[in-house]
Simulated scan of single mutants.
Amino acid sequence: MSLLTNVMDHSLDDGYAEAAARRRTAGTSGMPKTLRAKLGLAGGLVLAALVVTVGAAQARVAAPVVAKERQELIDRIDRETRTADKLESGVDGLRDDVSARQRAALRQSGGSDRADLVGVLSGATAVHGPGVKLVVNDAKEASSGGSGDPRETSGFSDTGRVRDRDMQRVVNGLWQSGAEAVSINGQRLTALSAIRAAGEAVLVDNKPLVPPYTVLAVGDGDKLSTGFRNSPDGVYLHTLEDSYGIRATISTESDLRLPAAPSVIVRTAQPSTEKGTS
């Protein structure tokens, strides 16, 4: 209680009190005494007020111009976005037309059954059937835990993110385990598909995908699931789960539906007309 009483009675430091007493004794204070000093102080205050007033007025005058320029920029972005969407819709329509013509040409050249089989194997035809659903997602938090780096030659930093090389191994493992058709986030994969990275994004056929990555693989569900888990690529994915917190779940499905690939145009390979010797 004595300490609290002392603090309340002497809330102002003794040094401040002594300085104030000295100024009173000397007859001085912080305010100017002469007329010139008073006029100087008044002029300084007027100048400061003038600067603040002019600045506020300029900001008020410029505000509508800035708002107009911002709105014009937003409108331009909206127009360009609509144009891009229209072009993309046109490209999708042309791709569908090309795919239909390709399927018709295949039927004319080799019969309906052979054309359907070629379309399924090439990815030009939408398919459905039993298989597995594998969902791969980034770690909840970036971590540096784990020993025994499975990305031995990738050069990727350990951030707990799923990388393009990880998805490459997952897809290759599914193909090796007996998958007949594979898609990632609705993107059908073919022999011409490329899975690569652009910064932190994973691209499939130059289209960026957002995690979680849902991989659908058509095939014998039980055999496909067991084969993938026991394959080197399945072990690789399990190591990523244990070492980096990457999340993965696999389940068998009775009926999966995979879309057709947007384009299966071959530009380099040509059919061989030579017959093999027996």
Rank of each mutant, 00 (worst) to 15 (best):
72 E>L: 04
86 K>D: 15
31 M>P: 05
61 V>F: 09
198 A>R: 09
121 L>Q: 15
180 E>M: 10
35 L>F: 03
51 V>I: 15
275 K>C: 11
182 V>Y: 12
189 L>V: 03
116 D>S: 14
112 S>N: 15
70 R>C: 03
247 R>W: 01
7 V>C: 10
96 D>Q: 12
11 S>P: 10
79 R>D: 08
239 T>Q: 09
233 D>A: 13
190 T>V: 00
157 S>I: 06
152 E>R: 13
276 G>C: 07
115 A>E: 07
52 V>Y: 10
5 T>F: 09
253 E>Y: 07
113 D>N: 15
151 R>G: 13
13 D>H: 03
265 I>K: 03
151 R>W: 13
39 L>M: 06
112 S>V: 11
38 K>F: 10
118 V>Q: 09
76 R>S: 12
250 I>A: 11
224 L>W: 02
261 A>Q: 04
180 E>P: 10
55 G>R: 01
104 A>R: 01
243 S>G: 06
191 A>P: 10
214 T>D: 01
203 L>W: 05
204 V>Y: 09
31 M>V: 14
237 L>E: 05
212 P>D: 13
237 L>G: 03
119 G>N: 02
52 V>A: 12
231 S>P: 08
165 R>C: 08
243 S>K: 14
127 V>T: 13
64 P>F: 00
47 L>M: 03
35 L>V: 01
155 G>R: 01
240 L>A: 14
267 R>V: 10
63 A>Y: 04
66 V>L: 04
179 A>Q: 00
95 R>E: 11
113 D>W: 15
216 L>W: 02
204 V>D: 14
199 G>E: 15
262 P>Y: 07
126 A>P: 14
106 L>Y: 00
16 Y>T: 14
255 D>S: 11
34 T>F: 14
264 V>W: 03
222 D>M: 09
192 L>A: 03
272 S>C: 06
87 L>W: 08
55 G>N: 07
